[in-house]
């Protein structure tokens, strides 16, 4: 459903993405692995239209969305759960959700209210805190809010940039359960992760991004067998 074709994105003279090609299948969980500084976030920002690629194209549902404004891309059906959650700390939980639906100009207020209700059912803890300032939530709760906020845009494809970053193992477990549930409900997910062990349990397809290039492309089975990845990302206890 999402096809990234030979994308080059640069900050000034430095090319962060040097010709990235990958595709995300409908109804699948696709995972992008890679070390810090490999260009994962840059790729996310390029897909969401915040950075303009110097070359290459991004197609979504067979429509070229390269270089479209972020608002248009959200409306086309791609929403991002950003790295570090980035909730609006001095707005209430409810307002954060409403901000997530900002781009839905066509939806009636009642429809958005229904969707908020659906989010509260999915994440009961958010209902308890709906009138609290988002800044007062715990890290895990903020991550849930961030996911719910992105879902308020009713995306067909959900991009998640390192959702487990900086969270306790228990919470990480919970977040990955959410990823599974969302997938079960029919949302396609493109997941950026450093936690390869967790990703192996949920993803259908893997890409490895290193220094702005895709260096691996395969199924979880192929990945588990690949020696380089074994050593670098799955790491046996001895080498770690």
């Amino acid at each position: 459903m999402l096809e990234v074709q030979d994308v080059v994105t640069a900050y000034g003279k430095i090319e962060a993405l040097k010709g990235v090609t990958l595709r995300v299948g409908e109804g699948q969980i696709t995972c992008l692995l890679g070390p810090n500084g490999a260009g994962k976030t840059t790729l996310m920002l390029t897909i969401t239209g915040i950075l303009k690629p110097r070359r290459g194209s991004v197609r979504f549902h067979d429509k070229d969305i390269t270089g479209q404004a972020p608002g248009g891309i959200v409306r086309a059906g791609i929403a991002l759960v950003p790295e570090n959650r980035l909730v609006f700390p001095e707005m209430t939980v409810a307002e954060n959700l409403r901000a997530g639906a900002y781009s839905r100009t066509g939806s009636a207020a009642s429809e958005i209210a229904n969707d908020m209700e659906a989010m509260y059912n999915r994440f009961p803890r958010l209902r308890e805190r709906s009138t609290q300032m988002a800044g007062t939530l715990s890290g895990g709760e903020q991550q849930m809010l961030s996911v719910a906020r992105a879902l308020m845009a009713r995306p067909k494809l959900l991009l998640m940039d390192e959702p487990s970053l900086g969270l306790a193992p228990m919470i990480v477990e919970e977040i990955f359960q959410i990823v599974r549930d969302l997938h079960k409900d029919g949302t396609s997910i493109f997941l950026v992760e450093q936690n390869a062990h967790m990703a192996l349990q949920v993803a259908h397809h893997f890409y490895l991004l290193e220094q702005g290039r895709v260096t691996f492309d395969g199924t979880p089975g192929e990945m588990a067998e690949d020696e380089v990845i074994q050593r670098a990302y799955l790491g046996t206890r001895q080498t770690a």
């Binding site: 915040i50 608002g71 248009g72 950003p82 980035l86 001095e90 707005m91 900002y102 781009s103 845009a153």
Partner: peptide, 15 residues
């Protein structure tokens, strides 16, 4: 208000 709290996140909402 979203822009004044966190412009980066606001852009992700399509603002």
């Amino acid at each position: 208000r979203a822009v004044s709290e966190n412009p980066r996140a606001a852009r992700f909402m399509g603002i």
